Computed example of a mutant assay.
Amino acid sequence: MTEQSDLRLLPWVGPEGKPCYLSTNEGDGFMSRLADRIEADQLDTASELLKHALQVLDHRTGDFDELPLLAAQLTAALRDVLRVATSRGSRLATPEHLQEGLPSDL
């Protein structure tokens, strides 16, 4: 059985809203590249939404009638960005000097 740390959290959820994971040793396989591309798109979308939200809040563009839609879009983007951060963070190698002295159940 593969340990949780050996799995990559993918940037999408399954049909029931549950997280999807990829078990692979290949960082350049088809599914890994697809996940990388989707993560990049999600981060770009979040960046664009943030720029738009700042403009709306600064009264430069748009009107406050669009705030509920903007809040929903920002919420979805934040969820995606947190999933990307979690996925990437779990794949970072922990330097050995940080592992020393850690309980074995961590």
Rank of each mutant, 00 (worst) to 15 (best):
C20V: 07
L57E: 13
C20T: 02
R8E: 10
L102W: 10
G101F: 05
A46N: 08
S5Q: 09
A76C: 00
R8D: 05
G27P: 04
K18E: 15
D65Y: 11
P103N: 01
V84W: 01
T86A: 03
S47V: 04
R37W: 10
S47C: 12
L9P: 04
L98P: 00
L10P: 00
A93K: 14
L106E: 06
A35L: 04
E3M: 05
A93Y: 10
L57S: 05
L78T: 12
S5D: 10
G89C: 00
C20D: 05
H52Y: 15
I38T: 10
G14Q: 10
V13M: 07
T94I: 11
P11L: 02
A72H: 14
L92F: 14
N25C: 02
R33H: 13
S5R: 15
H97Q: 05
S47H: 15
Q42L: 07
D28G: 05
T75Q: 14
L78W: 15
R79H: 10
A72S: 08
M31L: 12
G14C: 00
R60W: 15
L67M: 14
Q4M: 09
D44Q: 15
D6T: 09
V81P: 00
H52W: 14
H97C: 00
R37Q: 14
R8C: 01
V56G: 00
P15V: 04
G101N: 01
Q55Y: 08
Y21I: 01
Y21V: 03
L102Q: 13
L106I: 08
D58F: 02
A93Q: 14
E96V: 02
L70W: 02
S47D: 09
A53L: 01
S23W: 13
G27S: 12
D80I: 00
A76T: 07
V56E: 01
L74N: 06
F30W: 11
G29M: 06
R8M: 03
G29T: 09
F64E: 11
D63C: 01
